[in-house]
Amino acid sequence: MDQAFAQRRRRDLIVAACLAGLAALVPLFVKDVYYQNIMVLTLMYAALSQSWNILSGYCGQISLGHALYFGLGAYTTALLYTKFGVLPWFGMVAGGLISALVAMVLGYPCFRLRGHYFVIATIVIAEITLLLFQNWDWAGAALGITIPMKRDSWLTFQFARSKLPYFYFALALACIAWFVTWWLEDSKWGYWWRAVKDNPDAAESLGVVVFNSKMGAAAVSAFLVAVGGGFYAQFVSYIDPESVMGFQFSLLMALPAVLGGIGTLWGPALGAVILIPLTELTRSYIGGSGRGVDLIVYGGLIIAISLARPQGLVSLFARKPKADARPVREAVAS
């Protein structure tokens, strides 16, 4: 085992624990619900983007259709609760399992596709599902599903005004997604993925095991995103196909990871911390003009960051370049 690598991993874990601890304290000082709302969204996007990063960053399978899993999670949770009275906690797990299963079923034919063929396949599969839900009357079709308002309760995970429960749930989800990524980095799967990304020839020799590990990555990624979807349904207490399965959502999920640093441990969280408050604040404070200034700022910023920092903003913090990965050959051998 590489000494420096092990050391870095230990350091990452400590830093993450400290950051999570600090984050948990923030709501004690920031009491304004609007800012708390932004923090919830930031953590949610950090979690989603981290999960997306497992498949698309580490595994190199760029999916622009993850809104599918998000939507499945949201719909499973909301439908189980409103139609059968199943508590959202079970709903989120059920949504996660369904999504993981769907991810594997879809992964089987899709992982044979390369590059943009794969990307477009993920887009159209998500779009097809969106259209089916839009026309599925039992699931509310375009009218969507409203989660009826009841008393505040942890059991039904419903809180009329308080954002704190949602904040801590989102924080926990972000931590879990981060930890799963951290754990995967050092697993056999992590090695194979790095090997495949750095050297396509290695992929040939590893053929079957890599394919299976991709299926695993897709399942894990989809599960976590779907739990996020279930959370979103509870948080907003209303869902409709366009708002949880739209193509824009797939992009929004990928964006923090891309800007923060794709295929890195810290990139998604960093990207979310910068991007989400920025989009929320620009909309709130300059979006009311009706002149699209928020879009101009948002679009310009994406161009600027992706051109100026192609390896992601996380590289600003890197001590030395490429400190991230162990040399591939060694990794494959180990």
Binding site: D32, V33, Y34, N37, I38, L41, G144, Y232, V236, Y238, I239, D240, S243, E280, R283, S284, G287, G288, G290, D294
Partner: peptide, 22 residues
């Protein structure tokens, strides 16, 4: 006080909350 919801239910909710509390 005008607020932009961009046709998104989640943003509509957040903006309403901002209008009320801020």
């Amino acid at each position: 006080i005008f607020a932009d919801h961009q046709a998104d239910p989640q943003k509509g909710r957040a903006e309403t909350e901002r209008l009320i509390t801020q």
